[in-house]
Simulated scan of single mutants.
Amino acid sequence: MHEDDEASLFAQEVAGIQQLQTQEVYLGKKGPQVDFDARKQAASIAQEADRNHLSQDYVEKVEPNDVLEFKRSGMQDGVFKRLRQGKYGIEARLDLHRHTVAQAREQVYQFAEDCVRHDIRVAIIVHGKGDRTPDPNDQAMIKSYINKWLRDLDSVMAFHSAQRHHGGLGAVYVLFKKSDKARLENWEKQQKR
């Protein structure tokens, strides 16, 4: 179809259309007044319901055979060394095999909350090495996010890749902060000496 044919076809279609005489525009039913305070309250409730601040955005990739390690400043070297060597008793375990990143994000956040709530100091998270994924760009995705998320959790004092008998490079030991209750009990125990 040529340009002239299109123009004449359009002219035929719009022939007989008249301009509206009214200046009024109908936008639909006029509803009740918007209660912005209620909306603000609903938004804050929704935000409170999802307190999970762990991001699924960009993550710095780690390789399947990389060692993961992190400790907060002020942490004693001896404590970190014992964690790294797997010398602390493991009180809780989270296995993330066959999880999507979104599922892992929820599980890690909830696991950390539960560990702190129940005064668990040392746990292990099994994330896998991620070296069986056919696409090299997708390898070690969960491991990469674990490396990021554990640093972003204030309750995590330190973490380190596990010893071979605990999963090696496919798992991490995690040391959580003492709860306020546990700190008080420890302080009281020290005072009685």
Rank of each mutant, 00 (worst) to 15 (best):
K61I: 02
E13H: 04
R39V: 08
D138C: 07
W187P: 00
H53K: 06
L169E: 12
C115W: 12
A104T: 10
G167K: 04
F176C: 02
L83F: 01
I45G: 00
K29R: 12
V62I: 07
S44G: 01
V156R: 00
H127E: 04
A46I: 03
H97I: 09
V62P: 11
G78P: 01
Y109G: 05
V156F: 00
T100G: 02
R98D: 14
D37C: 05
R105Y: 00
Q139L: 04
D154F: 01
H99E: 06
K30A: 13
D95R: 01
Y145I: 06
V116C: 01
E69N: 06
E113L: 14
S179D: 07
G170S: 05
F159D: 02
H99G: 00
S161G: 13
A140T: 09
R105C: 03
L9M: 09
K87C: 06
G78S: 12
H2Q: 12
R82D: 15
L169D: 11
Q107S: 14
E6Y: 08
Q21F: 03
W187R: 14
W149Y: 08
Q23V: 09
A92I: 10
D138W: 10
Q110K: 14
Y58G: 07
D37P: 01
N147I: 03
Y145D: 01
H2S: 13
K29V: 09
E60I: 06
K129H: 11
A123G: 12
L96I: 04
G16I: 08
A43D: 02
H160I: 07
R183L: 14
S55T: 15
S155T: 12
A104L: 11
E113P: 03
H166R: 07
Q19I: 07
V116R: 11
K71F: 08
Q107H: 09
K71V: 06
K181S: 12
Y26C: 02
A158K: 14
Q19H: 05
G128S: 10
I125S: 07
P32N: 07
Q107R: 09
G28F: 03
A38W: 05
D152S: 13
E63I: 01
I17C: 04
E24A: 15
R72P: 00
N52D: 09
G74Q: 07
E63V: 01
G78D: 15
T133G: 03
D154Y: 05
M141N: 09
R39W: 08
G130A: 06
I17D: 02
Y109C: 06
A102C: 01
K81R: 14
V14H: 01
E6T: 07
G31W: 13
M1K: 12
Q163A: 12
V122H: 15
K61E: 05
D138G: 03
N52M: 03
Y58D: 13
R39Y: 06
R93A: 05
Q56V: 13
Q33E: 10
D180P: 10
M141G: 01
F111W: 12
A15P: 03
R193M: 04
D66E: 06
L83G: 00
K71H: 08
E60W: 00
Q23C: 05
D152C: 10
K148S: 09
F10H: 13
L83V: 02
D66N: 11
L175K: 15
S161R: 02
I142L: 14
L150M: 13
M141L: 15
A140W: 08
D114M: 11
A112K: 00
Q18W: 05
A43Y: 04
F36E: 13
E48P: 00
D131Q: 07
F10C: 10
P64F: 10
R121N: 03
L20V: 09
A104D: 08
G167H: 05
